[in-house]
């Protein structure tokens, strides 16, 4: 039996300030998938993610999450934004940031129920940040911030997690550990991650899409030369089982010499 489709992007076009950012993008994500969308900076990765979350509206085409318009499915989605460094001087503790993920607006006076605090504790413990709960958000390192933002995304028990450049703040040593966390999460949660950095591709990834204004979706975790050429418009060496460990951008004119 085929897995239920969670994300359904059909023929989506999007332009910003008269610039075409996304052209005829079509993509489906089944339940349990671990999709990585790679592409160069400015290729439309973040735009695609924001379209899927309903933060942007497509000029043409449709986006459905769980068969609904994105804004109606928002409570079933978790989102880790690209810029975790926003508002570094903001007076807010780690625990309060995570509790934002439990907000239920329009339900009367502001308070957090006991189950919200329990969920926040669980999410922070999962990300090994519970001991830091009282610290000010600005005092954390990039990697710790990333963990807090993932905890904020997980605290509402989402069925799908969207990660924008999740590796940005994480140093090379912690990456292995981070992959393990994602792999563990992927047992219950569908993951869609975008990155300009092909380091994110690991054996845990189940499918890959390349994006550079147009979208190229590949159903397996492998990446082909064809996709790379398409996305980066220059040859990139692929090493070991189609998963690049290094990206060597050798351009045509260099080879000729």
């Amino acid at each position: 039996m085929k897995a239920e489709t969670i994300v359904d992007v059909q023929d989506v076009w999007f332009s910003f300030n008269g610039q075409l950012v996304l052209r005829q993008a079509t993509l489906t994500v089944p339940r349990g998938d671990f999709l990585v969308v790679i592409g160069p900076n400015g290729g439309g990765k973040t735009t695609l993610l924001k379209l899927m979350l309903g933060l942007l509206k497509p000029n043409r085409g449709t986006v459905r999450i769980f068969g609904q318009p994105p804004e109606q499915a928002a409570h079933r989605c978790g989102y880790v934004p690209q810029n975790v460094y926003i508002n570094k001087t903001f007076p807010v503790s780690v625990l309060d940031v995570v509790l934002m993920g439990r907000l239920r607006s329009g339900k009367g006076w502001s308070y957090h129920a006991r189950q919200d605090r329990i969920a926040a504790e669980k999410a922070l413990e999962k990300m090994k940040m519970w001991t830091h709960r009282e610290r000010r958000i600005g005092d954390l390192s990039g990697g710790q911030l990333q963990r807090v933002f993932i905890a904020r995304a997980l605290v509402s028990n989402p069925e799908i997690l969207f990660l924008d450049e999740a590796m940005a703040g994480i140093d090379t040593q912690s990456r292995g550990e981070f992959y393990d966390i994602l792999k563990e999460l992927n047992r219950t949660v569908t993951i869609v991650a975008v990155s300009h950095d092909m380091m994110i591709l690991s054996s845990h990834v189940k499918s890959v899409a390349c994006i550079n204004r147009e979208l190229f979706h590949h159903d397996s975790g492998e990446i082909t030369q064809e996709m790379m050429d398409f996305a980066y418009h220059c040859p990139v060496d692929l090493v070991a089982h189609g998963i690049p460990h290094r990206v060597l951008s050798r351009h045509e004119h260099e080879k000729e010499r």
């Binding site: 933060l55 928002a74 409570h75 907000l103 607006s105 009367g108 006076w109």
Partner: peptide, 22 residues
């Protein structure tokens, strides 16, 4: 006091706040 959590979420990260239907 009534909108405290909503004001907090909006001030800290308005995009995320929108996703939580603030």
């Amino acid at each position: 006091v009534y909108y405290y959590n909503d004001f907090l979420a909006m001030s800290y990260d308005d995009e995320f706040a929108r996703l939580r239907n603030v």
